[in-house]
Design a protein around this nucleic acid. Structure first.
Lengths: 161, 161
DNA sequence: CTAATAAATGAGACTTATTCTCATTTATTG
DNA sequence: CAATAAATGAGAATAAGTCTCATTTATTAG
């Protein structure tokens, strides 16, 4: 078993993310612009789903508010951005790249954190069967589903009131 | 087997709903006012979850906008109103009275209709187990959950574009 | 049943998230 | 590198929801 230890300077990480942002944009035939790169980098750096408020805060000195919303809409159009509303009514956004598996969300109703969670394959299978039943009963064609779980993260969380 | 056919005039139905609205309010020690009765009646009459826009339209000649929002907040406070955001970002509201069982929602992404659906007991049991696992893994206390299904209702729907 | 008081209402001003406009800047392409 | 189409920034416009305050209504104590 070989172990590699890789040290990367912060600037190198930024460069890698910037490159991958460029790649994502060109793969979707979207022109490569500075605001788009900055938004993608911020989303990648944060990792988890993020509220538009937080994103705006991170980018307030580099991307105009109107441009931020426009870029988010662009990313939605090419299907790499998922947008939803959290139970406390803030708009949350997350990047969905190829390696991002099917997942659901866990919301802390205190600090507002949103966490991606995967549920077991058996569960997803069972949900698929339920969905088939519903489709028949209601004459509905179901294209997508999501499970949202709402609760509280532990006291250790620094952001919880 | 005895069959009862019951004919009720429209006015009688309204009177029944009005009475039950009064009952609901007094049971929750909330003062009985005209706007509150009108909002409850409208929610009961519609039956399904309804967008605030539609509700506002139904009540625009009888309840002021500010009062409508205030009444909805009052109903949330006494835990008989559930509010959520549909995938097309409109705010949806539904009455949750004693006889309203645990359920989930089906959204038509075309006409915006929202339908209550119940899932099987086995499914709910399995979901409970998944939730227990998640609680442990993420050090999270899960208080509530919801399953949302998004799709299209059939062509027969008059409201679909 | 009525008067006194506390609570609720209506109308419209205010706030805040998101979209739109338009003059300027930037990316793409040939 | 120039021409052209697309994207951006700044701030105006829109719309959902909240707030203010003068007026009305419901509740209750007597």
């Amino acid at each position: 078993m070989r172990i590699y230890l890789i040290f990367l300077k912060f600037e190198s990480i930024i460069k890698i993310m910037s490159n991958s942002s460029r790649k994502i944009l060109s793969e979707h035939s979207v022109s490569i612009t500075n605001p788009r790169i900055l938004v993608l980098e911020a989303l990648m750096e944060f990792g988890n789903p993020i509220t538009i408020d937080e994103l705006q805060l991170k980018l307030k000195d580099s991307v105009a508010k109107s441009t931020l919303y426009r870029v988010l809409n662009d990313l939605k159009k090419i299907n790499i951005l998922n947008e939803f509303t959290s139970p406390d009514n803030s708009t949350v956004v997350e990047l969905i790249l190829e390696d991002h598996p099917h997942h659901h969300h866990l919301f802390c109703s205190d600090c507002g954190e949103v966490i991606d969670v995967e549920l077991s394959d058996e569960f997803e299978l069972m949900l698929t069967k339920e969905i088939e039943k519903i489709q028949k009963n209601f004459n509905f064609e179901i294209k997508d589903h999501r499970v949202e779980m709402i609760g509280l993260c532990t006291e250790e969380c620094a952001n919880c009131k």
